[in-house]
Design a binder for these strands. Structure first.
Lengths: 180, 180
DNA sequence: AATGATATATATCAAAAAGATATATTGATG
DNA sequence: CATCAATATATCTTTTTGATATATATCATT
């Protein structure tokens, strides 16, 4: 059984779909799920070693290609069971830390231009992410029967909905700050 | 100078407004800023001790009232300077970890009712938070000249905008999942 | 063929933060 | 006056981050 380590279920969830190296796992975290999750190498590699000992994952024969001594991991039966328990558990924690908002709450910079600039930086990041999500959405909708992709589609829709809300807020906030 | 510890600027930002105990700081984090920030006692108390040594905060004479040996902290000149540097710095990190979305991405439960139930739990939490924010908003708007409260008003608007987006998503997601 | 830049890949460490628990006091309620 | 909830500090373990070290593979350019 996995401990209270969130990275474990992230790894198991990704491995349930395909075999991956630690590096691959990091790429996936920084990719399609980056707008609602994050994780570092410093948590991934120790978790993989530990989960191997626990029998939640196992090593596949290494390929000849790729970088230094590639280790491809595979989920085990025990790992699948652990993942299933977590998926069926109602308990979740949704954490967020928005430094942009924290600075805003503390009154922003004394120089209002700096405060507005910070909103603009946030706005640009959001716009960039939103474009990527819209491409995902279009591709998913091209597949007429997206039954297989429905859960991915729903997370993409979540991202689009929230990012559009952020952009509306940026516009309003800039307007209010500039009017004064 | 504060290290790379984010809790430091949270504490300094709160103390810049009023003198507080460690417990008060925790209450504030769990209150008005909880929808975009979080922090635990395990980070607050050690940070306060350390920041006192660094001269960023200092102890006020303890009151007779309150719980066990109350320690009221006050921000120092050095603390205010540190806060100002952070507020003027463009660099920010905006992190989030949505376990609700993570479960969704991994296909949710095999039992679709559990998946829908998880969305409903999320929806209820959001609705509760949204109500609180709307009360904040109304009170802020009653003050005709909210110049003094403009930054707080903007964070409240951010919360309302995003929570309404979440609720729209919950509605859509439930509809899509129920149709299949 | 050599060079150098970039991507792939694992590993580890210190610092930061979360989450849990222990301890003790005050104030309200029945 | 007993007891329960809220107030309050402190500390410990576990988890995570963020940074750095190491090494190979791949690709474009010279």
């Amino acid at each position: 059984m996995a401990k209270d380590r969130k990275i474990d279920v992230v790894i198991l969830g990704l491995l349930a779909h395909e075999d991956l190296t630690g590096y691959d796992i990091k790429k996936q975290i920084d990719g399609a799920i980056s707008f609602f999750w994050k994780g570092s190498f410093g948590s991934i590699y120790p978790a993989l070693s530990d989960m191997e000992k626990q029998g939640l994952v196992k090593r596949k024969k290494a390929d000849a290609t790729g970088g230094r001594g590639k280790i491809i991991y595979q989920i085990t039966k025990k790992g699948k069971d652990t993942l299933k328990i977590w998926l069926n558990d109602e308990k979740v924690t949704n954490d967020l830390k928005y430094e942009t908002l924290l600075k805003m709450y503390f009154g922003g910079s004394e120089d209002r231009r700096v405060t507005i600039r910070n909103i603009e930086i946030f706005e640009e990041q959001v716009k960039g992410n939103l474009e990527i999500l819209k491409v995902y959405k279009e591709n998913l909708e091209k597949v007429l029967d997206y039954e297989d992709h429905i859960h991915f589609y729903l997370t993409v829709m979540f991202g689009i909905e929230t990012y559009e809300a952020y952009l509306r807020w940026c516009k309003k906030a800039k307007k209010i700050l500039k009017e004064r």
